[in-house]
């Protein structure tokens, strides 16, 4: 088990994967509904504007004047490439995984460019500004810009396959799932705290002047932003200064409901932190009760707050409210 000095000496912060993932579904309103319903039917719909001619995709408003637009027109499906970028090494997120172009395609009858992909089989020499292209439609379409797999040279294009089952309802929303992966760095101060947890220690940092101890260390005293380089071990026993009993589910929280979320003020520290209380009847939870960390088994200790499985009551007399009222 490492000493605090050893932990502080290890400068390299911890890193770990962080994922943000959500299946966003967007209601599209009356104008984009026309566009997406058209795509599902294998048609391209634009809208006429006063200042920019026929806009594709259609907008609800003129881009210069913000006046509302409702004069829809069918355009394309063929058109010409106005400009393009050649993507020789597609990124993992992108929909074509061989070299392709992102291009602005001005569809016949439209006055603005539609941003999409052009697939020329990976051969950049087939790309040119002004080239004629047409959509390569998906067979199964849902009402999305992705119903067009890509634009292709006009000669290679085929008409849109008929819709397999014609739904009555216009398209009302579009799914735009998101998954972002981050290589999260915990930072130096936080890493000292986390590594200490793997050694069953809880480490705080003294405020400049030493009058107050922050757990976890925050790098600075948040009042003054002065650095807090002086680390100190605090007890794994503490006092519940306030709490709530949570009965509402959440995607990212993995405790069985209901659970008790406590603000616990550890002995030797001056700031409470959030954790859960277990092995306690809900009706017994109270302000001022004494609790102690229940640590994971030695082989399960990690550089994470998960090393403290939960807090649990201990057989010590309650602390009177007057003694901790400044901390809650």
């Amino acid at each position: 088990m490492a000493t605090i000095e050893e932990l502080v000496a290890r400068a390299e912060p911890l890193k770990g994967p962080h994922v943000i993932e959500y299946p966003f579904r967007r209601s599209c309103g009356p104008v984009l509904s026309k566009f997406f319903t058209g795509l599902r039917e294998g048609k391209l719909i634009g809208v006429r504007s006063e200042t920019a001619g026929v806009l594709v995709p259609p907008a609800e408003y003129d881009p210069q004047t913000a006046e509302g637009l409702t004069d829809f027109v069918e355009v394309g499906p063929a058109g010409k490439v106005v400009s393009y970028a050649w993507v020789s090494r597609p990124r993992p997120m992108q929909l074509l995984q061989h070299p392709f172009a992102y291009a602005l395609v001005e569809l016949d009858g439209a006055d603005t460019g539609l941003l999409h992909m052009v697939d020329v089989g990976g051969d950049e020499s087939k790309m040119s500004v002004g080239m004629r292209v047409a959509p390569r439609w998906k067979a199964e379409r849902e009402g999305s810009v992705r119903d067009i797999e890509a634009f292709v040279p006009e000669a290679e294009a085929r008409p849109a396959p008929p819709v397999i089952a014609e739904p009555d309802e216009p398209v009302k929303s579009v799914a735009t799932p998101l998954r972002l992966e981050y290589d999260f760095t915990a930072g130096r101060e936080q890493s000292i705290f986390l590594r200490a947890l793997a050694s069953k220690k809880i480490v705080g940092a003294r405020s400049p002047g030493g009058d107050l101890v922050y757990v976890p260390p925050r790098g600075t005293d948040p009042r003054t932003a002065e650095p807090t380089p002086d680390f100190v071990e605090v007890s794994d026993k503490g006092t519940v200064v306030t709490y709530s009993i949570v009965r509402v589910p959440s995607e990212n929280i993995h405790f069985e409901l209901p659970y008790v979320c406590i603000n616990v003020l550890l002995d030797g520290s001056d700031i409470p932190f959030f954790h859960v209380l277990q092995n306690c009847e809900l009706t017994d939870v109270r302000l001022g009760m004494r609790v102690q960390a229940s640590w994971a088994a030695d082989e399960d200790l990690t550089e994470s707050v998960e090393s403290i499985r939960y807090f649990e009551p201990i057989d010590e007399p309650d602390v009177p409210f007057e003694q901790f009222k400044e901390y809650c």
Binding site: L194, V246, S304
Partner: peptide, 10 residues
């Protein structure tokens, strides 16, 4: 983020 435990329910 990693290394933490989500306990605060919104």
């Amino acid at each position: 983020p990693p290394f933490s435990v989500a306990v605060v329910a919104g």
